[in-house]
Design a binder for these strands. Sequence first.
DNA 1: TAGATTGTTAATCGATTAACAATC
DNA 2: TAGATTGTTAATCGATTAACAATC
Lengths: 224, 224
Amino acid sequence: MEESLPAWDKATTADGETRSIPGAAIKRLSLYLRILQLLETERAEKVSSAELARRLGLNSAQVRKDLALFGQFGTPGFGYHVTGLRKELRRILGMDREVRVVLVGAGNLGSALLSYKGFLKQGFTMLWGFDADPEAASARARTRVPIYHVDELERRLTAQPVDIAVLAVPAEAAQPLADRLVALGVRAILNFVPARLEVPADVQVRYVDLSLELESLSYYVQDD
Amino acid sequence: MEESLPAWDKATTADGETRSIPGAAIKRLSLYLRILQLLETERAEKVSSAELARRLGLNSAQVRKDLALFGQFGTPGFGYHVTGLRKELRRILGMDREVRVVLVGAGNLGSALLSYKGFLKQGFTMLWGFDADPEAASARARTRVPIYHVDELERRLTAQPVDIAVLAVPAEAAQPLADRLVALGVRAILNFVPARLEVPADVQVRYVDLSLELESLSYYVQDD
DNA sequence: TAGATTGTTAATCGATTAACAATC
DNA sequence: TAGATTGTTAATCGATTAACAATC
């Protein structure tokens, strides 16, 4: 019997066929988009897969292959139109619409994330923060984003669903909160908590594990 | 002609042979270590590769293979001794000594990282922060870690070399600062700046790109 | 047209998983 | 001894890269 892939792991070609899209390719699309935005400010009209690859330290065949997963955006002998490709990538990544984000856990790291500019750019809307101690959290955070008590999660997210939750709570609180967020319709979680989350297959979780990054770097700085 | 690998990408077996160690395996070692520390608090004497795999959502053969890259730590029919394996992993990862860390760029995100508890645990020493405006940075940061002007980088790091730098500066400042850090003997950079860094082959760079994570999650939350 | 560069197939590479003899 | 589990080899899987006909 064949396992069927979750919907987000598929893409449809012109002829209606369905293929699996590697997550690593999606991350690279986001990198391509960043370079295209840079090229646009440089008033560049066109760009080749070789140039995109050079700027990102990738292989040009990989760039062409990644883009070809979603359509034929280039012109042989010419390359890609910067503005055109940028629009396509924004559409593919779903950045051509408002993406609604909440933060759960506005401690030290969380409150910094609340005011992180990179999140506010690019069509992301950081709607609300939630914390077990909203007064203390508000004092920490230098932002206009309102911070509510975590008990208000259900009320707020029922009234107005969100797409993505950023999770930065103590380890023992992570799984119960993930469960509540999923029940409230959250489709993706950016998880800063060093704990594995169990979620349904159609919910995406990305782990940003700072201790793990530092520990694995420690391996490389030994003098032997 | 054969390219020779950087020293950190090799490991030596008992018979003096040298093999390449995948970076992904190193990251998993750090995950294994975390579970072993948990098991130790649970007073567990032994653990099998199957149990480690289960707790981390991995394959047991992968666990055994990762560990076997560095030696024979297990006993057939028994498994691994929790305390013994924990010690071995701490040694392999270089966590059995002080790892000296500095932060460069104590803005919103940076100052949160300065006081991030996960960095202080586990044998990491966050020595100093550096910022172009150390007064403002000190006001932001709720930490005892001293923050100096970035001009003091050379003086401080010459007097006392560090292993790892955490970089959280504006994009245009990233490469020049990376160059200075490498010249000062920094062996690894944890880079929160969305910019590619050019460094010598023996310097490790890890990218933590929050915008990229959020953008690639955006792909999965589209309703189609 | 000649030169450049795409989209795509085939080849390569590397990482994951299965299988199992060795062995505690 | 019987049962369990390692370390390791072989098989599988998937991702990257090379190559090139198509074509602007």
